[in-house]
Design a protein around this nucleic acid. Sequence first.
DNA 1: GCGCCTCTCGTGAACGGTCACATGACTTGC
DNA 2: GCAAGTCATGTGACCGTTCACGAGAGGCGC
Lengths: 335, 335
Amino acid sequence: MRHVADRAGVSYQTVSRVINDADGVAPETRERVLAAMRDLNYRPSVAARSLARARTDTIGLVLPFPVDVTFANAHFLQTVGGVDRVVAENDYSLLVSSPNDEDPALSAHRRMVRQRAVDGVIVEAGMGDEGIELLVEAGYPVVAIGHVAAAVPSVQPDDESGAYSATQHLLALGHRRIALIAGSTPGNLAQQARLRGCKRAGTDAGQPLDEDLIATGEFSLESGHDAAARLFDRDVPPTAVLAFNDAMAIGAMQLLRERGIDVPHEVSVVGFDDTPTASLLTPSLTTVRIFSSELGQRAARTLIGMLRGTKVPPVPAVLPSQLVVRQSTAPARRD
Amino acid sequence: MRHVADRAGVSYQTVSRVINDADGVAPETRERVLAAMRDLNYRPSVAARSLARARTDTIGLVLPFPVDVTFANAHFLQTVGGVDRVVAENDYSLLVSSPNDEDPALSAHRRMVRQRAVDGVIVEAGMGDEGIELLVEAGYPVVAIGHVAAAVPSVQPDDESGAYSATQHLLALGHRRIALIAGSTPGNLAQQARLRGCKRAGTDAGQPLDEDLIATGEFSLESGHDAAARLFDRDVPPTAVLAFNDAMAIGAMQLLRERGIDVPHEVSVVGFDDTPTASLLTPSLTTVRIFSSELGQRAARTLIGMLRGTKVPPVPAVLPSQLVVRQSTAPARRD
DNA sequence: GCGCCTCTCGTGAACGGTCACATGACTTGC
DNA sequence: GCAAGTCATGTGACCGTTCACGAGAGGCGC
């Protein structure tokens, strides 16, 4: 920087002003400085700037699983897509941290804390919340995406009402034996909310769900396939399946096709997420939309707002979810 | 840091030594310093450290598309998964940059250059190579994943021979009307290599491929579906389809199922990538394995090696690809 | 008892910027 | 014509580390 200043015949402070687009610099001087910067192929050092300004203009993103696992899930994918977009728009950088195998619960957060390299952190809920506490204790502004117990601002889909309306839809179609393909981690709060929604819809309709018809999967296509296999091996198989994400719903549809069971005339299938592919399947998938990208965008905006000193309402921002009825659901056949 | 030093009754330099695990500090002193660090909840500032050491221990990752688009592609997903793993193992951080809509070709690289926040950059090939030149000019060590024209170290799958053996496999099964679902960006070098491999296999066997049977897609499931629709609308449809990634192959299989065309007995389908789902489909997909995760790991190791001063062979590291024969290919029926 | 070496620790400068304030030239108002 | 108020620029200190030295304490050999 000093070199640039010399070459342009000004002081380093003036160079600094030019870099930061501060006013109070004569247009002609500015030009001279810019020229010198070009000539010397000069680039400011973020490290020095961060040090002096006590901020890094970087936002940390903590993932619940390794990169390849996390992004294999369409919901997380969309979510992070939204974050990425907003972050880039606001000239922040994105530093990602994912857990390693040794300490899946906390390593991603730990690494983020150890490196004091970000101004704030966005956490994808999915694992426990101890990690969030860790970040908060370390003094970071934190925004969570999804349901968290920790007292940090969060944006979350309305899982409960989404699950409620999906179940209601199936009940209205006359289905009585409704199977659920839930997640296998009962501690997960989103999972709990969805389950709550399903059950409430059942009891509200005077048709409580059969607990025996709740299978679990890992949110992957294969696990949905396998869970469905278990469900349809039963003596009295279900007439409808509600999976807690689209991938598992698609897996279930695969199994049904293998077994020659027609969707939707013999069995109805509902997913969760409204993945882009959901609408492209045949039959296209009835599913609960949760606006994942929007969720990510809001989280990023909220965090950036916090960094810029805006007040943030302490209540979680809940985005309504929405049932999208397509071809994979139909009235139950009379037994 | 000064505070810690005071509290431990030593100088700041000694604290620095403890932080960096340098020797020449008495065990008892070390303990005292560590205790003080804990008491004061002290965390070193990366910014200051980066400034003083002139490195950031951060590696940049430049994606060819926005996050959600890039990671929807299984190959990129695996690749970055590999990078992430190695980066974390070596205590580096990962800073990701993806293009924005205004300047898809260069914005990701530009942002990376502007922020002088990384020690080196890994670039996922996919877009043009000007961006790489930009990074090199800015003085960054760069490693590319995939085929690039720029003179930087790269790791790449052996696309040509993979495509060659896939085509050869189909020819050996007696197929004569082999359709290709290629990418729609002819400038892409990986694409060119695959095309070259296919054509060479054809001519080597005395059965040059029919140029009219080359459709294009966007590497998505839907585009594969649509490309297949165009191919099978022809008067004389192909008897085999070779798609340039698994997603498009799966899309093609979907179309065939819709039209009641049996795979593999009526039409054989081959994919590219060996996505995890490929083996789980029915029929399971014959595909070309390209070890994406391994590719990412190597790229990361290469870059870290460069940063640590290891010499890097200037030739691109080529990982052999490998045809995995499953159920979606079968001998051609006699016409 | 002296010089020398090793171990442990401290000091000053530098890294490359930003911030708060000071300074000088030129307008403006009366 | 002079005080006061802009505008443009320069100066010194500081951000929190690391690096290259230097220096004191203790052990050893002779």
